[in-house]
Every structure is written in C-alpha cells, then in structure tokens.
Amino acid sequence: MSAADRSLPVAKTRRQVPRAGLLLGGLVLLGAVAVLSIGIGAHSVPPAEVVRALFDYQGTDDHVIVWDVRAPRALLAVAVGAALAVAGALIQILGRNPLAEPGVLGVTAGAGFAITIGSALGLAGGQAGQLVFAIIGSVAAALLVMAVGRQSPLRLVLTGMVLTAVLGGIALGLRMMLPDAFDTYRFWSVGTLAGREQEPLALPLAAIGVSLLGALLLSRPLNALELGESVAQTLGAGVARTRTATVILITVLSGAATAVAGPILFVGLIVPHLVRRPAAGSVPWLTLYSMVLGPVLLLVADIGSRVLLPTGEVPVAIVTAFLGGPMLIWAVRQYGAGTR
C-alpha cells in the first residue's frame, strides 16, 4: 500500500467493493463484446458454427473465418484499445492535462513521417514494411521528445506538439511531391483493424502486454505524483524515475498501437474521462478501468465499422471519431457537474 493510499483508509474501504464490482462487470462486458465481434462479419457464420469453431476446429471455411480472420482481429482490438486507453490515462496524469492524448508526444506524427519516407524509398509498400517503419518512426519521435522535454511535463507536451507540426509539415510536402508516397500514406492514415491477420503482430502485441503490466506496477507511484511533485517526494516516490518510466510506457503503448492499426484518435482521450469518476482519484483503478473499457470501446466501434454501411466496411478510426465526439461532450458535462 502506498503512502497516498494510506492517507485515505476510510474512503478506500467504502469504495473498494463497487470498484471491484465495476471491474468485474467491465470484464464480463468485454467478454460479451469480444464474442459478438467474432460472430459478426461480411460472411454469415451461424452462432452454433462459431461456437463449434472455437471448441472443435475442423478447418472448414467458416472455422477458418472465425479463427484466422475474426479472432486475430478481436485480439488486436483488445490490445490496441487497452494500449491507447492506458497511454491516454498516463499522459493525462503525467501532463496534468485532461485534453492530452497519446499523440501529443509526437508518436503518431513520427510513424506517419517514417511511413512517408519508407514509401518514398519504395520500402513501405506492404503491410510488414509499414509496420516496421511505423515502429521506427514512433520510437525515434518519442526518444527525441524525451531528450528535449524531459525536464518537465509541460516542456514534454510542448516538444511533442512542435515535433508533430514539423514532421507533419515535412511529410505533407514529401507526399505532395511523391504521388506513390501519398498513395501509401492515405491507406495507412485512417486507422483500421481489418486485413491485419497476416501481419507479424507477435512482437508489438507482446510489447503492449508487457507495457500494460508495467503501467499497473507504475500506477501506485503515479498516485503519489498526482498529489504534486513536492508531496510525492515527501511520500518517498521517485519523481524523476516515475516520470521517465511513464513516458517510456506511453511511447511503447501508443507507438505499438499506431504501428499495428494506424492512427486511431479519441480512444486515448475519451476512455480516461469515462472512467475517471468511478476510479475516484485512484490511479491504479483508473489504469485498470481504462484497460478494460478501451478494448470494449474499440470492439464496439469495430463491430460498427462492419455493419454500419451496406456498401462495406469503414475504417474503425472513423467510427471512433463519431462515437468519441458525443461521448467526450457527455464526459465533459459530467465532469463540470461534478465540480459544481
């Protein structure tokens, strides 16, 4: 138990039951949405056949669709949703800015810039090539931002914004001059979970898994940091170490998510807002809730992306944008009501 948690023993005891109940409910919801995601698609697979595919795989076309197309996609949605939501929660805590989202560290711009360069060199035409360039770009951008802005959260965010603008401008210029680079970028630039089942996803998914675990371990020191640097130092939390570790986690989570799915906005912004009230100021609970609600939101958006239009799928990033706008307004109104 951290010093910060020890300071509120009564409140903690009273809130733990509903918090745990909410988490359990969230996990049940996540399971239900994941099953629904595996059951819905362009080709109609009867529910009984979906169940049979899961427990008695025979290699028929329906079973292949469930196991080799839809299940990897659902798994990807869970990983990307959790990564973006937790990265969003961490950057909002670290930057003390409720409007911060993972992209402010320049990760998305770095990935887009690297893919533009890769396309211009003729090396990022395929999905695997794009994945590699996106990872390189994300990591390089984040390292640069950390190197320049590590002294303070504000400087970090400002550096990220400046780098985003610079990389975005250069990449835009290159794309205007190089139609092939533009062609590659325009397909990547709208985040999607479709067509990823053949990509080498093991490494990015493993990185997301480890980072989520790291975020949980880091959530207690962050709890202390939320009280302010001087208080955190008084409570024995290593401020510099915690901040550096948090930036690394944000980089890996958002970089890996962007690399495998492309830019998906709003998840990292909206989910922490939605779970802030039930978390009641506890960073560990905020992290856990984000880890569950992020995948739920992305899975629901992904299901919507398959069924909303009769003409075919729309990229999931478009659906999250449509969902995210109203949800953000709702969350902000709730937030305002709570502070009055």
Binding site: Q127, F187, T192, A194, G195, R196, G262, G312, E313, P315
Partner: peptide, 17 residues
C-alpha cells in the same frame, strides 16, 4: 469448358478486401 474467376491487383488490404 472452364468457369473462370479473376483476382485483380486493386484490392485494399487495409480494409481486408
């Protein structure tokens, strides 16, 4: 005598099509 189908090169893998 053959029923033929053709797969073209303009599919969009980013949409899984």
């Amino acid at each position: 005598q053959l029923k033929l189908g053709h797969v073209g090169s303009y599919g969009d893998t980013s949409k899984g099509t």
